[in-house]
Amino acid sequence: MKQDLILNLYRIMKRIRLVEEEIALQYPKWEMRCPTHLSIGQEAVAAALSMCIRKDDFAVSTHRGHAHYLAKGGSLKSMIAEIYGKSTGCSRGKGGSMHLIDKDVGFMGTSAIVGNSIPIGVGLALSAHLNFTDQISCVFLGDGATEEGVFYESVNFAVLKNLPVIFICENNLYSVYSPLEVRQPKGRKISKMVESIGATSLSGDGNDVTNCYRIFRNSVNSVRSGLGPYFIEFFTYRYKEHCGHEYDNNLGYRSVAEFETWKKRDPIELCKKQLLETDLSLIRKLDKIDQIIKEEISDAFLFAQNSPFPEPQEAFSGLYADS
């Protein structure tokens, strides 16, 4: 794999990580007054996909959607402003962290309801099919969403109509604080279950960004060429609490040993190691990348903090679209 490509993957992941870390740092000032689900630890899947799809492809995501939004090319300033509830936010302050959108880059929205955006992504794929375009639709979901009936229904229809959709399941082992073993039968392989519905299915290491990239390159090509839907299960891990800025290992729902095991396989550190193993002098380049990202983030937070709140009267407009 070319070094430039890996550097790009590193840059996208690191940008997501530093954005999320800044949110976590600023959150206790209590100016971001909405439920916020951070993606720290889960950056690789989103970053890898973003290098394999086009701007005019669609994506939809979940309550934990910052990484997907940013990787698809969503405006950083608009996202931060949205979390601050400002009028310059990507949803004009009406959505918050859980309702992100950037239509200009095909990012068609996130949902706070588990599984809710899955059929919407399939519907976008249906529109591409009806409009005779070669766009694809990328549906991000978590392991919990595979327990929803709507997930099965959506995959079934996508297979039935051979739609251009990729279901991307980030299996981070927990639904809020509920581990897989209380939610799914022992030994269940989600990808095998979905394969039986008829989608091309596979699973992979969601913390190895170059592995994710290879998987996406093949699957995106396949879906775009009309060979039907794909389902990919990536194993990954969230570092922070389900919702909020803190670590929550003190709660005892997961072991510190488990946490440390995953942290040793941090997607960004793995990628950095891979780069430095080939060329130690890249360290300066990586530092430079980090520096540029930090400046961008600082600008975005300043933009959000200095943006005006929407007028209170705005709450009472925008219910219906005008014909």
Partner: peptide
């Protein structure tokens, strides 16, 4: 449920 969501998704485009 899914078919309603699929209608919504298609209607966005």
């Amino acid at each position: 449920n899914a078919m309603t969501g699929i209608a919504i998704g298609a209607s966005l485009n």
